[in-house]
Design a protein around this nucleic acid. Structure first.
Ligand SMILES: NC(=O)c1ccc[n+]([C@@H]2O[C@H](COP(=O)([O-])OP(=O)(O)OC[C@H]3O[C@@H](n4cnc5c(N)ncnc54)[C@H](O)[C@@H]3O)[C@@H](O)[C@H]2O)c1
Ligand SMILES: NC(=O)c1ccc[n+]([C@@H]2O[C@H](COP(=O)([O-])OP(=O)(O)OC[C@H]3O[C@@H](n4cnc5c(N)ncnc54)[C@H](O)[C@@H]3O)[C@@H](O)[C@H]2O)c1
Lengths: 230, 230
DNA sequence: ACGCCCTTGTGAAAGCGCGCACAAAGTGGG
DNA sequence: CCCACTTTGTGCGCGCTTTCACAAGGGCGT
């Protein structure tokens, strides 16, 4: 019981922690640019918008990289978090669907800054294929398998209409893509070993609407909705 | 104990449930379009990609809208969830920042379909102001307060560069906006009564990279990283 | 009218995540 | 060298979330 765990980083960082590490990383880069050499958990937590105890516990999952009485060395912590997240290597990303969203993503500078390289932008529409976007020529969707294989693409970003998303997803998986970021408003079915994350604007707005309505009901006085009930 | 709760919907639906209701709603709309009259928790859960027990517990927070032995009436459930989320009324949304992302959002049809109306698209750049996007003329950021007040905007979408986001956010809050959807990679500080949700591409990619790296380590055999440790 | 079968709604248990509060550990001053 | 001060790393309890498992409830066939 008192025997300390031999490995600081056993196996498996809590998912909630993983989701916050990029947040810390962003905050640390901000500090780094301002030349700050060290930072306390209190300060860093404040910048990242989280509780300081949570921050410390999160970081403790990577190892003991802080110095008691001092704080964390900014550069060293950036390196450790980056390594843990796998950002010390480059990742090739393919964006499928060169519509409004796909083009905005491709054109977005912030992508490349963290080691993500846009290997290709693909589309099915002949009128869109060949078009130049952000220094990339839009390629035809049938080149997907070649692109994934040649460019070692491991992350696919789906920005096609909802109806086409599952089909595109299947092709990505078949070609060897291991992770998918889905913008289309559908639930994608994938094999066990493939990770999917979704971004859904509409869902976010609906959640905001719910809370907004709650506030409105509060102002109006509770109980008004009873008139609608049977 | 056996006395049934007088109110089916006491007060406060769990946040995790609220976040899934839009998912169910989307699935139900799909079923509705296909003319399906009723659906069981098992089927609906499958379409929405969740566990059926979780679905039933989620729905039970709104009331007892199912029929044992049969399932849920699709249209009725759509209405109940919509009402709970506050989608039976319209919400005015202002998009601030008419760059790549802001224009893509404004041009996105799926926005309006769930009762969200884009009241205005604003920008600070004189070259962008006046430009026509998706039937809207881009207005100057200084009109923000007027727009919010005149159009009863309660939700603000921030699509400006990170450096401008907090300032824009403050102006939104000052003008009376109660909810903010933030695309800029910064943590926004807002008063207690304002809700903020964020969408961050870069974070999503980093989370995917983490898992991708894990898979790679697994294939390569564990323990290889020890060589880097002191 | 009755009983079978299906599905809901929900206790209960297990799991996970959060944050308090504090001991341990390292720094710097005298 | 020692002591006071600062900050980390974490044990612990609490509340939220998920999942199981099943009793209660309702339709439908006979
Ligand atoms: N634009 C937004 O702000 C926004 C917001 C939320 C969600 N979305 C979702 O993102 C997706 C894309 O949105 P958008 O506004 O860019 O749509 P869009 O219609 O502008 O672009 C879709 C593109 O996908 C291409 N495409 C269609 N089928 C394809 C296939 N099988 N393979 C490859 N490409 C194919 C089309 O040719 C088109 O260029 C949609 O699912 C939409 O619901 C968009
Ligand atoms: N494009 C993407 O795919 C993407 C992805 C992830 C995150 N983001 C983030 O979304 C935001 C917008 O991205 P983008 O690609 O559209 O950038 P962009 O540079 O194309 O557009 C930003 C727009 O905001 C306007 N602006 C600047 N200051 C303003 C102010 N004070 N008030 C009003 N408008 C102002 C600019 O004039 C410009 O039109 C950025 O913070 C970016 O980091 C974008």
């Amino acid at each position: 019981m008192t025997s300390r765990t031999p490995r600081p980083r056993e196996r498996g960082i809590p998912e909630a922690t993983v989701a916050r590490l990029p947040l810390y990383l962003r905050a640390l880069h901000g500090l780094s640019e301002r030349g700050t050499p060290t930072v306390s958990s209190e300060e860093l937590a404040s910048v990242a918008g989280v509780n300081s105890a949570k921050l410390r516990k999160d970081l403790s999952h990577l190892g003991s990289y802080g110095t008691r009485g001092v704080g964390y060395d900014v550069e060293y912590l950036i390196y450790q978090i980056s390594r843990e997240l796998g950002l010390t290597q480059d990742w090739s990303v393919a964006i499928i669907g060169a519509g409004n969203l796909g083009r905005a993503l491709a054109d977005y500078g912030g992508f490349g800054t963290r080691g993500f390289r846009i290997a290709a932008l693909l589309d099915a529409d002949p009128k869109t294929v060949g078009r130049e976007v952000a220094g990339l020529s839009v390629r035809h969707i049938d080149e997907l398998e070649d692109v994934v294989s040649d460019e070692k693409v491991s992350i696919g970003v789906i920005a096609t209409p909802a109806a086409a998303a599952q089909g595109v997803c299947d092709r990505c998986v078949g070609a060897g893509v291991g992770s998918i970021l889905n913008f289309a408003p559908v639930v994608l079915n994938v094999p066990e070993h493939v990770d999917v994350r979704k971004v859904d604007l509409s869902i976010e707005l609906q959640i905001l609407a719910f809370h907004e309505q709650r506030k409105a009901v509060g102002r109006r006085g509770p109980g008004w909705a009873d008139a609608l009930e049977v």
